[in-house]
Design a protein around this nucleic acid. Structure first.
Lengths: 136, 136
DNA sequence: AGTTGACCTTACCCTGAGGGCAAGCTTTAG
DNA sequence: CTAAAGCTTGCCCTCAGGGTAAGGTCAACT
């Protein structure tokens, strides 16, 4: 019966341990990603190691660019023992497609802008290929 | 003295001709990119060909990802006969760096996510490499 | 002349993922 | 006992517009 006392930490500790901000953690709770945290008598939120693990999951998913809504779905699957990895992979590939699309858009911008910048001599004269290019 | 009568169009016509929305045009005016448009007695905005050209400039610049603030600077230089193309090029290259940075970030995400997706078999089983990867 | 429909006006709330700040309560350290 | 640090909620801000509402205007048709 030893070790049944779970280590509980306040939101500031949780923030430090996960690398999130306290504001983010409250936001994720408000958005329904996390169950409502338990509170002390004074109203302070308390987190156990399982909740810290979930926060870590959220952080990783955000780092991969998943939106809050997508992470909500991912967490649902994570918690569901009857999930199929097919569902998870579908979500991931949808997001992957979005990322690829954004990359393509940005690269298109980059290419056009680079062309303009390359054709601008960048000297003291007012004549400027960039402005001319934007004018067309 | 012929052809001194300028063709004036309402905001809807201006929107159609530039490919912007009326809402965008009002927003650009409000943000100070354009001088306040002249109005009819009834209060309708009127645009001449020079203003349409400026709207076209804004549209091109937005398509290259410049922010409203950056476009404000670009328009300032565009209108300034004493500008140097050096200033324009500096603005463009600052923005180009931002774009490159975003592309790099997104490609990093893409790479990591692709790895996870590739290692997930995507079948009926609950075991999922993507969820495992997010959990670490 | 009246009416209908298209067009215009301003004003307000909404987006995503939090950041920043204020006012007030609690806990901890000295 | 007191000061500092930490916690709470609540409100406003971002950026580039989109959506909608309520109301005024214009052109065409009857």
């Amino acid at each position: 019966m030893a070790n049944l006392v779970k280590t509980l930490v306040t939101i500031g500790q949780a923030a430090k341990q996960t690398g999130l901000s306290a504001k983010m953690i409250r936001y994720y709770e408000e958005e329904g990603l996390l169950l409502k945290a338990n509170r002390t008598d004074a109203g302070y939120r308390l987190y156990n190691s399982q909740q810290l693990q979930q926060l870590g999951f959220i952080k990783q998913a955000r780092a991969l660019g998943f939106s809050i809504a997508q992470i909500s779905s991912l967490l649902g699957l994570w918690r569901d023992p009857n999930r199929s990895s097919r569902e998870v992979k579908q979500l991931a590939e949808l997001h992957l497609d979005e990322i690829k699309k954004k990359v393509a858009e940005l690269q298109q911008m980059q290419s056009l802008l680079q062309q303009l910048a390359d054709s601008c001599c960048g000297d003291d004269q007012p004549q400027c290929a960039i402005l001319d290019g934007l004018q067309k």
